[in-house]
């Protein structure tokens, strides 16, 4: 399972970076989304995968029996998902506005502020 996820994470990073390097603004946003999903999955995998063992103390005991899922990475991922949701939504509004204003989604045409 870890191996599979590692491959998935790798491909997410790779496709994300590839998309970032394209000239289309839309693909840029997709690339950013893929990258952030890749890092979320990385955190998930790195917290060790445990199946069906929630970290909840059973009735009448004082601690959780030993192999249990680490709740922290999931909390981290949730936070990161919320944040990237907000940021990507904003980025979408932004490129929409930019497209209306500039009339192109080609990043090569968006370099008037670089000179």
């Amino acid at each position: 399972m870890e191996l599979l996820l590692a491959i998935v994470i790798g491909s997410l990073y790779a496709t994300g970076l590839y998309m970032l390097l394209r000239r289309s603004v839309v693909k840029l946003i997709i690339g950013l989304g893929l990258l952030s999903n890749g890092s979320n999955l990385l955190i998930f995998t790195i917290g060790r995968l445990v199946r069906g063992r929630p970290p909840i103390v059973p009735e009448g005991e004082s601690s959780v029996p030993s192999p249990f899922a680490d709740p922290l990475p999931q909390a981290l991922i949730l936070t990161a998902i919320v944040i990237s949701f907000g940021v990507l939504a904003f980025a979408l509004v932004l490129i929409h506005r930019a497209y209306q204003k500039v009339g192109t989604d080609d990043l090569d045409d968006l370099k008037t502020t670089d000179m």
Binding site: G86, A89, L92, V93, H96, Q100
Partner: peptide, 13 residues
């Protein structure tokens, strides 16, 4: 609030 703010802003255009 935030979600609808974004959705309605986009929808109004």
């Amino acid at each position: 609030g935030v979600t609808l703010w974004i959705v309605l802003t986009l929808a109004e255009e």
